[in-house]
Design a protein around this nucleic acid. Structure first.
Lengths: 204, 204
DNA sequence: CGAATGACAAATATTGAAATCCGTCATCGG
DNA sequence: CCGATGACGGATTTCAATATTTGTCATTCG
């Protein structure tokens, strides 16, 4: 391929953090979390592994950045339910269903990728905590809207606590630790029952 | 100790399934789930490992029996909240709090034992499923009582589904998979918030 | 000059041979 | 006769030697 003399093809474009993350995801998908090395990432990019260390201080930092990206995508996909119009109770059900759907679809479509994701999650609890805070914030906004609209009662303590409780109560349907249960035949009914419970709890 | 000539001391009493289970728990506590062997169990009992196989067909069956015993103890400790008197809503909160307390106390008091327990749980999903059904049945009885008393509304679908939803909604506070979170400083608040949510949902 | 390289030491993972364990069963002892 | 035993083959686990990976840095390249 003579790429050592070529200055314009993709493989020789300037090495950016973004491109490294892209390559890291590919390597994680291909080899799994245990066997994905930064040498592999460098090979995919056609550079030496030393170059990767110019952009990420450690392998852990690289994996953390990948985890953050993955989680950020979830937040973005749920944003419509927070910002778009419609009754808040319907938006809440929509948000919860979308979150469950995203997770379940990912788990069902590619169990190995989900396992990889879970390993990354376990490695980066600080990143996950920030992400959870973000999600709980989204719920809080919906619940607050609902209170203003009159479809939800005033919170027992405050919106943040109520939102957290809603998030915790539906934990079984979005925490990757439970991914194994999501292929059960009656999981849909169980989810609907919990959402119904939550909606009852919030009604004025 | 010359126990080979002694016919009346504890170690030479008839070998019963009960005594084997006792010894197995001890070995599991001492060596952990990975290094606990049936030879160890036999040594504790002062018999050959072949004798253990007269009472349990396989090592897996032995561990399953231990798991069943541990779970059964939980059910027994919660029974008062199902059978004793008092308003059903208070009994439900008591039951949930007791379950959380039992699990958390076990996890906090001895993290290694909790880890052992979790490994056993993971090995015997069939036993766990039966146990969960049992617990959900207890919730269902309380909720049914509450409906009769008028402190709980009629269930959306049926008592079993509602009970299951209550169990699922509080999953984060009894599933050993979340044991790591139970030492967080604000876990008590989070638990109280979810219980409060559940109580609101059940109110007429 | 700044970005990229690859040799290098320390840390981590892999391998395969030796040790241990599981489960069976012919035999023993009371 | 009945339960306990321990030797045994096959499966699993340990452990130490080997190989790979991580992260650094002096050097090279454009």
């Amino acid at each position: 391929m003579a790429n050592k003399y070529c200055h314009s093809m993709a493989a020789t474009e300037t090495l950016t953090a973004e491109r490294i993350l892209e390559a890291t995801e590919e390597v994680l998908r291909r080899y799994g979390p245990a066997k994905a090395t930064v040498v592999d990432v460098a090979r995919v990019l056609g550079v030496s592994h030393g170059s990767v260390y110019r952009h990420f201080r450690t392998k852990a930092a690289l994996r953390e950045a990948v985890t953050e990206r993955w989680l950020e995508r979830t937040v973005v996909e749920l944003r419509p339910y927070v910002e778009d119009g419609g009754p808040a109770d319907e938006r809440l059900t929509g948000w919860l269903t979308a979150l469950f759907g995203l997770k379940r679809h990912k788990a069902g479509g590619d169990p190995e990728l989900m396992a990889t994701f879970m390993v990354l999650i376990g490695e980066n609890s600080a990143v996950v905590d920030r992400h959870v805070e973000h999600l709980v914030g989204q719920i809080a906004r919906i619940v607050e809207d609902g209170h203003r609209e009159g479809v939800f009662a005033a919170p027992e303590r405050d919106f943040a606590t109520t939102a957290r409780a809603v998030f915790d109560a539906t934990d079984r349907f979005h925490d990757p630790a439970h991914a194994g249960d999501w292929s059960a035949p009656d999981i849909g009914d169980a989810f609907a029952a919990v959402v119904s419970l939550v909606q009852r709890a919030l009604r004025p």
